[in-house]
Amino acid sequence: MTVSLSPVLSARHISVNLGGKQILDDVSIDVSPGELKVLIGPSGAGKSTFLQCLNFLIPPDTGIISLESHEIDAKNPRALSLYRRQVGMIFQDFNLFDHLTAVDNVAIALRKVAGLSRDEARRRAMAELDRVGLSQKSGLYPAELSGGQKQRVAIARALAMDPKVMLLDEPTSALDPELVGEVLAVIRDLAAGGMTMIMATHQMDFAQALATEILFMEQGRIIEQGSPAELLAPGSGTRTGDFCRRLLDAAPAAAKD
């Protein structure tokens, strides 16, 4: 079982400076197969920046990123494209391709990147939509879908590339409360199926139940990390615990309006 010990994705000493501001300061992470790492932290901590660094959408100034022990050379377009295929990304605001139907959103990269034929891509895309419970909606355009449905299409789109790891940037924070559940259910299924994931979220119940590790970020650094049990135990006195209690206190107030 040596395989399961070596990380799927490893990022070492990632630093990013944007507009003269140190956004990420020496951040490192290792994810082993089947792990779900949860990033939490206040707004502006750098969670989105970090996740985008992990697939070079924001190129890090310094640091090394490796997939299954192979260091990624982001200067090489072929290598970068191959790497990104294997790292699925889910955005807070979905970013579905607005001019394509749900099924074509999933199929386009299968055709243009993975090189499948139109029919094969369509078949595979339908299978992925089925997996997130949306095969009935395959012909609809993004503007005709609810937020929860959009995010599930986005997940199907990422899954279609057979990623080795998924990065999820607050996948439910743009959703109406009643739609959060359907998206979390899909992510829960993924976790149960052994998908390796790094997820930024403010859904603390979800994190507590499913995270293998929680990383607490603030001002571009990871200042605490550990299992949910360690960090969230009552009386643990951790920043993470503090932060979560404040979130939970705020939640009922937010639910009222």
Binding site: L57, P77, S81, L96, F97, A109, M161
Partner: peptide, 24 residues
């Protein structure tokens, strides 16, 4: 985000522009 999503799927920038940006 449209081009960013295309890149995240492994498209080259040129492919993202051709298949995602220009049609819109």
């Amino acid at each position: 985000g449209q081009l960013r999503a295309a890149l995240a799927l492994g498209m080259r920038e040129s492919e993202g522009i051709l298949y995602i940006v220009l049609p819109q």
